[in-house]
Amino acid sequence: MAFLETRGLIKAYGDNPVCRGIDLTVEKGSLVCLIGASGSGKSTLLKCLNLLEPVDDGEIHFDGEDISIPGLDPQRVRQRIGIVFQSYNLFPHMNAMENVLLAPRRVTGQSREALRPEAEALFKRFGLGDHMTHFPDQLSGGQQQRVAIVRALAMRPEIMLFDEITSALDPELVGEVLDVLRALREEGMTMVLATHEMGFARELADKVCFLDAGVILEEGPPEQVFGAPKEARTKAFLSRVL
């Protein structure tokens, strides 16, 4: 079984079915890109994966464990699965460093002093060395998003989920965030990325999944999905966005 795998995942909001039976497999160390129009179920799928949304039916297996069993304590699972959102969602009343240290402090019970060196290393690695004491409203969108990534990485997740993390950014800031993803890719982080950055998906993804109306309509290596899509709807979508 793959590192992360969903089987027949179903999720509806009220009468509105969003995920209608998704079978997704993510191998350890791979980068999977989810593409598709708005409303195709990408974001909801990611939220289901780290249990922010309970699934209505179907299974999610993570590292050999079924994490979609109703009643399972989601806290322990979420500590191992990082997620970054489109709108950064930094905590506005804390500076960047406090944003990053909060979860490790509370979850591991270690002191700020003990955790700071590792956090500082992450900040510096992603070009944020000068911004550790800045508050979110003093940072640009790209900087905020990188802090959000550092915040998720500080929990040492085994897999990272990215929910259209560049969609709210000005075009000239997209590059600095994509560079972070490239760096993570190089160190072998397992990643699932819902994205509209087709160029990025084509360049780096191990697998591209095209979501349409709540199912994975087509999947495969990027050359295949982008170069020779089989489904008419995939072709139509790609011709609109490329």
Binding site: L52, Q75, G82, N89, L102
Partner: peptide, 19 residues
């Protein structure tokens, strides 16, 4: 979204409220 972000980091409901 603040709640989601905090929960996604693995914080308990209590810590999400408090911090």
């Amino acid at each position: 979204s603040q709640r989601s972000a905090a929960l996604s980091l693995g914080l308990s409901n209590r810590d999400v409220m408090r911090y």
